[in-house]
Design a protein around this nucleic acid. Structure first.
Lengths: 152, 152
DNA sequence: ATATATTGCATAGCGTGCTATTCTTATGTA
DNA sequence: TACATAAGAATAGCACGCTATGCAATATAT
């Protein structure tokens, strides 16, 4: 039984994810952003007020992870939290002006990372790649996780 | 300027990496292994004695990350460290019997995750996918990181 | 031979993800 | 009305990655 990293999808995907994250970080750190914060910002750049639970649903990260990320974002002056008058439990998150102002350069940075990463592929290969990534994510999504199917 | 997760390679790769890690973890945690430890074990299953610096080179993680991972592995009884008689700086890492015994089930677990993840793809698509992943990793490797090329 | 790198490793500190637990506030039902 | 449940959020504690430092041992250069 052999295990080679060159033929292991998991190995390659993990490797690639670290490289993507590193590349994004070098580009957005100078603006005061970080990789974990980025998906939250993307959501808030589209609709400026969202609940923490809404963000969790949209981004697909655990609630505790989101709470920590939002804490850092608040510490760094990117967001503010307001008590909802309707429901005493919910905190409405909204971007500060500082956060809003980062939209264009930050999105450009992310697009640039993607362009650069895929620059070795032909346009057809890029479409294939994105399609296959989405398809594999989809496959995962079906059982979400869980043990391997028992073989007969 | 728009940013959609469905068309962002970085977003998809990051998402996928988390899913792969979660799936692997549920399978190997019962054996006392974790995702960060796995690549180290793979190396040590092939040659039972390696230097920390060797492991860093082969696995491509930072030296500090490796030091921490090895600490946990030692704490959990997977490895032992021996002073090298030739060079007073180096610690030779070698597997314990417990670590050696995990080889077959752990590798089977990882192969199973890959099989399961790619089960929605045709054999041709799987080859394409692995090939494209390797190609993109390659592209990253060339400049390793760095700012986007200045456009004229 | 002594001074200056370089190499191998450890530690501190942080970001980002996870699970498990707890607290508060709504909401349902007896 | 009282009590159990559910939902939103925070916190504790861990794994795993990173950068930045520090330290000891070896190599190299003058």
């Amino acid at each position: 039984m052999t295990f080679s990293r060159q033929t292991s999808a998991g190995y390659l995907v993990n490797d690639l994810a670290r490289r993507f994250a590193a590349a994004l970080q070098t580009r957005i750190k100078p603006m005061g952003l970080s990789t974990g914060v980025f998906p939250v910002m993307v959501q808030l750049w589209e609709r400026t007020e969202l609940t923490q639970a809404e963000l969790v649903r949209r981004i697909g990260v655990e609630q505790a992870t989101m709470a920590n990320t939002l804490s850092r974002m608040h510490r760094d002056g990117l967001i503010e939290r307001r008590q909802s008058p309707d429901d005493g439990r919910v905190q409405v998150i909204h971007l500060t002006e500082k956060g809003k102002a980062l939209r264009d350069p930050a999105i450009e940075a992310a697009l640039s990372v993607n362009r650069s990463a895929l620059s070795g592929l032909t346009p057809e290969e890029r479409d294939q790649f994105l399609g296959l990534l989405a398809k594999v994510v989809e496959t995962f999504g079906q059982h979400d996780d869980g043990p391997p199917p028992t073989d007969p």
